[in-house]
């Protein structure tokens, strides 16, 4: 499909690899996907690239049971709208999660995964997905016996 052709993949690659968006330096608003114009400041706006932290909360989610061919192997896959801590909303899959723990408001962080492969001999598209946040690993450093 032309929409997944190597040049089309490449044009958006950095944004997908690093979760890049835009920030208006005039008003401070952040945007995803990247924008060329700040809708509030218009011509007075100054748009800069921003790398989001990847932290966010699940705004809504679904478990897909019926998917097009290129995503078929991942079903049942969790797709969610995630509201980033900087504000913008992004859509991607939630991985490494038990479907039973899914809920609106769940804290997630971005990770780097394969989005799909174009046939066995085609290019591989990578990008951000999300996984549940675990902030409790600090305890391991306090336990002398690890």
């Amino acid at each position: 499909m032309s929409a997944t052709a190597p040049p089309a993949h490449w044009r958006r690659m950095r944004e997908r690899y690093r979760l890049l968006g835009s920030r208006c330096e005039t008003c401070g608003a952040t945007f995803f996907p990247t924008t060329k114009v700040c809708p509030k400041c218009r011509r007075k706006g100054k748009i800069a690239q921003v790398e989001f932290s990847g932290r966010g909360k699940v705004y809504s989610y679904t478990v897909i049971h019926s998917a097009p061919k290129m995503f078929e192997q991942f079903t049942p896959a969790v797709v969610a709208l995630v509201q980033l801590e900087e504000g913008p909303m992004v859509l991607s899959q939630i991985v490494d999660t038990d479907h039973k723990e899914l809920k609106v408001g769940m804290e997630v962080e971005a990770c780097f995964r394969k989005l799909f492969e174009q046939e066995q001999s085609g290019i591989i598209s990578y990008g951000f997905k999300f996984r549940p946040v675990n902030d409790h690993w600090g305890k391991y450093y306090d336990n002398k016996d690890i």
Partner: peptide, 14 residues
């Protein structure tokens, strides 16, 4: 949306 695995039923499910 579609590039990240969304389908139409999925968007309305969201």
């Amino acid at each position: 949306e579609a590039y990240f695995g969304a389908t139409f039923p999925a968007l309305y499910a969201l």
